[in-house]
Design a binder for these strands. Structure first.
Lengths: 255, 255
DNA sequence: CCTTAAAATGTTATATAATAACACGTGTGT
DNA sequence: ACACACGTGTTATTATATAACATTTTAAGG
């Protein structure tokens, strides 16, 4: 019985919400009343919210809170969601147990954080939402970099960030890029973030860039690294021949 | 019409939730169908969640997410909620526009953060939930201290905290106490937090301690300050004669 | 091993709330 | 003046939740 309740909970977490009918279909050997009562229990535990005809995941709901703090973030979040998901799924296995990991801010990274719910590691991040998501994993030591909160993307930045980072050793850095072009390399829109990225990349034993293909060919104001600084580039599809050749030349693996 | 929708929203934010019947009572000049439609709108804007017979505030729901990360916090949150509310309401006016403010972690502080939705100031905090709450206020510059996240109370602590604080000037520090006794002074249960409190109190121009009266007579493991270090003590009721006398002697104002 | 209490489940009737569909007025811009 | 979108009200219909009681299962103690 606890199994069922747990399954229901996990299902809701995964899908964001369910209807009673769906649950009835999935658990045909109990009555709908029992499922209702399961939902009651989960609700009293503050894990879900019952809505008419089903239930919603509290965590998903809170996520949308971050996202429309400043209008357009919600949209960006959804843009290329499929690609971001693919990228995150490719990246997750690289986060090996016991390692010290840096995770950047951004919606792709948020996806990645969601996938790192098991495994023991130390994580450092500058994104408040990523930190919250990661702190669900009881085995993760989550470190949040200090600084002023940027309402647009729920990430912190500031003078102290580099200082803070300088005290932490990083095995693998997962870094998001907003653009890549042959001339400018990997680029990003905000100066502070770039400084941090640069610093982290220099410091990390292994640098992994996550980027959906929509970013290819785009150049943002600030360059934070070039392909030769990168160990692995993860995208949601195979690279063009030109980029593949360059990668091979400079020793950047593309997944 | 937009007024009504806004009022409904504010009501929900304030109370956490409402029933349709309550709303029908409050807006007798529109039909219940209209109110339903208002709720639909607010829901599509991700401001509330409709539940059977009413609606809930998304923000309140997310708050409970933090709170039961580790079981008992939800209970503590509710304990003496009325007193905490009173304390927070007394404290809020002290946060004058333009000032640089430190806000501690804890449920009373969370209440205070909720009350500081207007006014322009710089805030520093070590509590992730407080920071999120404050970042609703567009005029507040919210600084989060870096460190490892403590799942129990969603606050950060660590080696970098004092360094970080040392670079920021504080006009007013709002500090929470878990206990007060004549022998031990103001006390608290975790060492790291105490270190930070001590540092902040030393640094701040003005120190305000927030404490509901249930804490009187209790002694926690670590002392972080004595009445003579405190400018203002805020409680949910008048102090006993003895404490009042001591306060007068050392120059601590009690509100 | 048996007994009892507590917890979990099922069943029904009843109460409650949500939805859909249509109708009406009001303002806006063409 | 017209079309049109928008907010609103009304009703009938459908769907869902609740309450109360009966039954089964589980856990705990003697």
């Amino acid at each position: 019985m606890k199994d069922r309740r747990q399954s229901i909970y996990e299902l809701i977490e995964q899908n964001g919400q369910v209807t009673l009918h769906e649950l009835e279909g999935l658990f045909p050997d109990v009555s709908s009343m029992t499922i209702r009562r399961d939902l009651d229990h989960l609700e009293t535990e503050n894990k879900i919210v019952k809505i008419k005809g089903g239930a919603k995941s509290l965590r998903h709901l809170s996520r949308s809170l971050f996202q429309d703090v400043e209008g357009d973030y919600a949209q960006r979040e959804m843009l290329h969601a499929a690609g971001k998901r693919i990228v995150a799924e490719k990246a997750a296995p690289l986060a090996e147990t016991g390692r010290s990991i840096f995770i950047d801010a951004g919606s792709t990274m948020m996806q990645l954080a969601g996938l790192l719910q098991t495994g023991r590691f130390t994580v450092v991040t500058n994104a408040v939402n990523v930190a919250l998501e990661l702190s669900r994993n009881q085995n993760a030591a989550v470190n949040l970099i200090g600084g002023e909160i940027n309402r647009r993307n729920m990430c912190v930045a500031g003078a102290g960030a580099l200082d803070y980072m300088s005290r932490i050793n990083i095995d693998i850095a997962f870094v998001a890029a907003s653009g890549y072009s042959e001339e400018a390399g990997f680029t990003n829109g905000t100066l502070y973030d770039c400084e941090l990225k640069r610093f982290v990349i220099k410091k990390a034993k292994k640098t992994v860039i996550l980027m959906d293909k929509s970013k290819l060919g785009k150049t943002m104001p600030y360059t934070f690294c070039k392909p030769e600084d990168v160990d692995v580039l993860i995208m949601d599809g195979p690279p063009e021949a030109e980029l593949a050749a360059l990668a091979k030349r400079v020793g950047m693996e593309i997944i």
